[in-house]
Simulated assay, not measured.
Amino acid sequence: MNSTEAGLAAARPDVRTRRAGRLFSAMAKENAVGYLFIAPSLVLFAIFLFYPLLKSIYLSFFLTDPRGRVAAFVGLDNFGSLFRSDAFWNSLLVTLKFTALTVPTGLLLALLLAALTFGKLRGMRTFRFVFSLPVALSVSTSSVIWMMLFHPTTGTLNYFLTKIGLSPVQWLTDPAWALVSVSIMTVWMNSGFQYIVLLSGLQGIADDIFDSARIDGSGPFRTFFQIIMPLVSPTLFFLSVVSVMSAFQSFGQMNILTKGGPAGSTEVFVYSIYKEAFINYQFGTGSAMSLVLFAIIMLLTFLQFRFERKVHYH
């Protein structure tokens, strides 16, 4: 090896080092730009999510005065008194009933409407627009609309019941009907979002699949249950997880329509937290309840993901 070749061989590591340095510098700049873009979101999460969570954990170990100031350290006594409270178990039972009434019904209704309107027939766009309308309404607006429909004397629902010879129903004041009434309103309120998501899932299925099914002589019911259902199972799984979480966090419609009544029949878990913290001014117990709700939602989400193996990802 002459002197020139030796110099080139000695220079190669320096070239590699410089290239690695430039690559590392470029990656660092790219990462810095990425963190700069997500910094506003991180700040908002820290203010409105992480800080309240840490504050709730802190307050759950204390008794507080009506202004929310720490009065005395009680350790786990707030959790103990919570699990010994009949109101806690009643709110949990009401929330489970509410979830059972709204989630399966809402998914079945949205799936039925999406299956009826995802075709390319004339006039389907009008139906899609109508079925998607509830997504544009807030909880308060939807609650006010249904409050007028549920009115015992001037409500439209009782008007039609009397027209067919049935007795009027005390929709929001009868303990046997109050939770059902709020559930009906909730199913309608959530139907727009669920319908749009399921319609998108159905429209994502290739036309060749339906053509092959028709050629093989598959009827509409067999096509729906053996072809469509497995192909939209990822969409249904996503909606089931989101709907269960939403049902356990429902508050607005109960606060507007029933105030948790009558006789606690619509006092769901979040309304109990609100009442404990902002009506009874027991912020320590309210914080403990919010942490229990967080744990319950995490457990339910984990159990739902255990069934993910039955989802057909195509």
Rank of each mutant, 00 (worst) to 15 (best):
N2I: 02
L8S: 05
A9P: 00
A10G: 09
D14S: 07
D14V: 12
L23F: 12
L23G: 11
A26L: 13
M27L: 15
M27D: 02
N31M: 14
N31L: 15
A32S: 14
A32C: 12
V33F: 15
A39V: 12
S41V: 12
F45W: 12
F45D: 00
F48C: 07
Y58F: 13
Y58I: 06
F61R: 04
F61P: 00
D65V: 09
D65C: 10
R69L: 12
R69H: 12
V74R: 02
D77W: 07
N78L: 05
G80T: 06
F88H: 04
N90R: 14
L92V: 13
L92P: 01
L93W: 12
T99R: 02
T102Q: 02
G106Y: 01
L111V: 03
L112W: 13
L113Q: 04
L113R: 01
T117I: 01
T117F: 01
R125P: 00
T126S: 12
R128D: 06
F129H: 06
F129A: 15
F131E: 00
V135T: 11
V139F: 11
S140Q: 09
S140A: 15
T141A: 15
S142A: 14
M147Q: 14
H151E: 15
P152M: 08
L157N: 07
L157V: 13
N158G: 08
F160P: 05
T162Y: 10
S167W: 08
V169W: 06
L179G: 09
V187R: 01
S191H: 04
S191D: 05
Q194G: 11
V197M: 09
L199A: 07
F210L: 10
F210A: 10
A213T: 09
I215K: 03
P220I: 08
I227T: 11
I228G: 01
L231Y: 08
S233F: 09
V241G: 06
M245I: 14
F248T: 01
S250R: 08
F251H: 09
Q253S: 13
S265Y: 07
E267P: 05
S272E: 09
K275T: 11
I279T: 15
G284H: 03
T285L: 10
A288G: 13
A295D: 02
I296H: 08
I297S: 08
L299A: 15
R309I: 08
R309K: 15
V311H: 05
Y313F: 14
H314F: 12
